[in-house]
Amino acid sequence: MSEFDEVLFTVADGAGRITLNRPRALNALSVAMCEAMHAQLDAWASDDAVERVELRGAGDRALCAGADIRALRAAVADGQDWLRFFEIEYALDAAIARYPKPYVACQSGIVMGGGLGVSAHGSRRIVDASSRLAMPEVIIGFTPDVGIAYYLGRASGELGTHVALTGDSFGAGDALALGLADEFAGEGTPSAPLAEASWIGECYVGDDAVEIVGRLAQHPDPDARAAAETIRKRCPLSVAVTLEAVRRAASMAVDEVLAQDLALVKALIPGPDFAEGVRAQVVDKDFAPRWQHDRLEDVSRAEVLAAFDS
């Protein structure tokens, strides 16, 4: 057992077991947790007593809800080295993606943002009836990161584009359809509402976010029109950048997507939208962010491309 109580490590019956141990914070990731996990994975890679790695979250609410965005916002405001968290987190995600032994992730409960980074890159991802997954970064002025655009860009029927641009959560069945999970721990087959929605494939084609929202808004299906309203509430710059990122990621390897994510981190995290999005969502909780662009139409192509050059 590790003495570091935010993440616990044990070995038993050939399994190296990692337990994210911050249940009151939905097992949110810290720099120290990511460093400890990476070091332990490196040690287990050459340990004959460890045949496989198993990842779980403490408590019954979440595997991991992602990073502590309130702390990140404060670090940016205070001039601290906020970039270090992302560098360490992405290095951990890359190590998981190329891990030489089976890496089994139990994606129970809430699995969002960085929680998908430490689970979806594993070799065996298991969802259950409690699973609720999301990449909700467009809600806080950021973009889906931790290499998950690799899967979103490859998902069939534009499911990944829908998930990325709305930031909405989804269950076990859609996680399987999106390629973010491999198997369901339960009886029967979980429903996949997104995979059954033909309007997603019809509306999310192309590289123009404004056109996509226009098609959604004019579609006869009320769920499509609701998606248009949802995207309109998200950060305009984040939506435009995210669409570009997902399209590029479709032809990239995981390491390349993580490198792209780091460039977007440098462009978006110090900007006004991230601070404002986190303020509205978790600090003041008024859920009324004032983005730097009033509308998606106000985001220029030059601004989108500049984000990838950071």
Rank of each mutant, 00 (worst) to 15 (best):
S2D: 00
S2W: 00
E6D: 12
A15Q: 08
A15E: 13
A15G: 01
G16N: 02
R17F: 03
L20T: 01
L26V: 03
N27G: 03
E35W: 00
M37Y: 04
H38M: 02
Q40D: 02
L41N: 04
D42F: 06
S46Q: 13
A49W: 06
R52Y: 09
L55G: 03
A58L: 08
R61G: 08
C64Y: 01
A67F: 15
R73I: 05
A75V: 04
V76T: 09
A77N: 10
D78A: 15
D78E: 15
D78Y: 03
D78R: 15
Q80A: 15
Y90F: 15
D93P: 05
A95R: 15
Y99M: 11
P100V: 05
K101G: 10
S108E: 10
S108P: 03
V111Y: 12
M112D: 05
G115Y: 08
G115T: 14
L116M: 14
A120D: 10
H121R: 04
G122S: 11
D128M: 12
D128A: 13
D128N: 15
A129Y: 02
P136I: 11
E137D: 13
I139V: 15
I140M: 13
T143R: 03
D145Y: 11
I148L: 14
I148M: 14
Y150L: 01
Y151T: 00
S156M: 06
L159V: 00
V163A: 13
L165W: 05
F170W: 14
D182T: 11
T189L: 08
S191C: 04
L194P: 06
L194I: 07
A195R: 05
G201F: 13
Y204I: 08
E211Y: 01
A217K: 06
Q218W: 00
A224D: 10
R225F: 07
A227F: 11
R232W: 03
P236D: 04
L237P: 04
V241Y: 12
A249M: 11
S251N: 12
D255I: 07
L262A: 07
L264A: 10
L268D: 02
L268A: 08
D273L: 09
A275K: 03
V278G: 06
A280I: 07
Q281V: 09
V282E: 14
V283E: 11
D294H: 11
L296G: 00
D298I: 08
R301D: 12
V304S: 01
